[in-house]
């Protein structure tokens, strides 16, 4: 269950479009409007051509597992009811990586390269929480 005392994302001018899309359940990736390079997490400048112009694409949500950790100790009281939970680093089909909560048992026999799909869970506290599930 979502609780109100989990930390909330503090959106910035650069990331505002990401969180707006996330509210609608869409995983968006920032794209350089000049050279087309995708970048995540959202930021001001393209590290390839140094353009400050950016637009956004919708990601397919398809990804593969790159690495993970299973949280057994809650370092924040907001997660005490959630342990153990799996935090997955995934490689999105479009290239950038993302971190999300993997909806699977902690002892699921995870392997790099495993296919997963993205979804957002809308928490009661207003945060959009990125999740992945085995495809």
């Amino acid at each position: 269950m979502a609780t109100t005392d989990k930390p909330l994302p503090h959106e910035t001018e650069d990331s505002q479009p990401y969180w707006a899309k996330a509210k609608g359940g869409v995983l968006a990736i920032q794209r350089c409007a000049d050279c087309g390079r995708l970048r995540h997490y959202p930021r001001l400048v393209c590290d390839n051509c140094h353009s400050l112009e950016a637009d956004w694409i919708d990601a397919s949500g398809r990804a593969v597992l790159h690495s993970w950790t299973v949280a057994h100790h809650a370092f924040h009281p907001g997660f005490a009811g959630d342990v153990p939970y799996v935090l997955a680093t995934v490689e999105l089909e479009e290239g950038p990586r993302a971190l999300g909560i993997l909806d699977c048992p902690a002892d699921a026999g995870l392997k790099p390269g495993m296919a997963v799909t993205a979804r957002f869970e809308q928490r009661a506290d207003g945060a959009s929480e990125l999740h992945f599930a085995p495809a």
């Binding site: 989990k6 930390p7 909330l8 994302p9 503090h10 959106e11 910035t12 990331s15 997490y41 790159h66 690495s67 993970w68 950790t69 949280a71 100790h73 370092f75 924040h76 907001g78 997660f79 959630d82 939970y85 935090l87 680093t89 971190l99 999300g100 909560i101 945060a127 929480e129 990125l130």
Partner: peptide, 19 residues
């Protein structure tokens, strides 16, 4: 802090474990 902390990636142990 914006993209990982709200998911429960709180402490260095959790941030470094995937490495």
């Amino acid at each position: 802090t914006e993209f990982e902390y709200p998911l429960g990636a709180i402490a260095p142990a959790q941030l470094y474990a995937p490495m």
